[in-house]
Amino acid sequence: MADPKNDAFNADTALEPYWTAAREGKLLLKHCRACGKTHYYPRPICPFCMSADTEWRTASGTGIIYSWSVERRATPPFAIAYVTLPEGPTMLSAIVDCDLDAIAVGQKVALAFETRDGQPVPVFRPR
């Protein structure tokens, strides 16, 4: 993943609040004032109605596993998952700090942050 701070070509000022919040352990979602829907990954222009009237909202920090897989050939093996947030969107993330053989669809998880490639990113652990 490119580091927005060190990559002029991919610099994305619209996402700065997202990464600032991530460093503070908060997950921001984009909510559209025009259509009332929340989307992920965040975009300045709403993908549901193309309104530019979007605002950041802080996620509650809980979720439910929609689907998951463990990449067994990786060293060490790791879990990827789609997690559905109570705010609406289902987001791609990782399941961490858990028994990889005990992950299940429908499992309740809680938000955490892990630094990957120098950037804190939202992950989830069982709650």
């Binding site: 993943m1 927005p4 070509f9 990449e71 987001m91």
Partner: peptide, 17 residues
């Protein structure tokens, strides 16, 4: 960089998973 990359690449999505 595709727009999804910062929000997906850190979790190592692969064709397999």
């Amino acid at each position: 960089q595709p727009p999804d990359a910062p929000f997906e690449a850190p979790f190592k999505p692969s064709v397999l998973n």
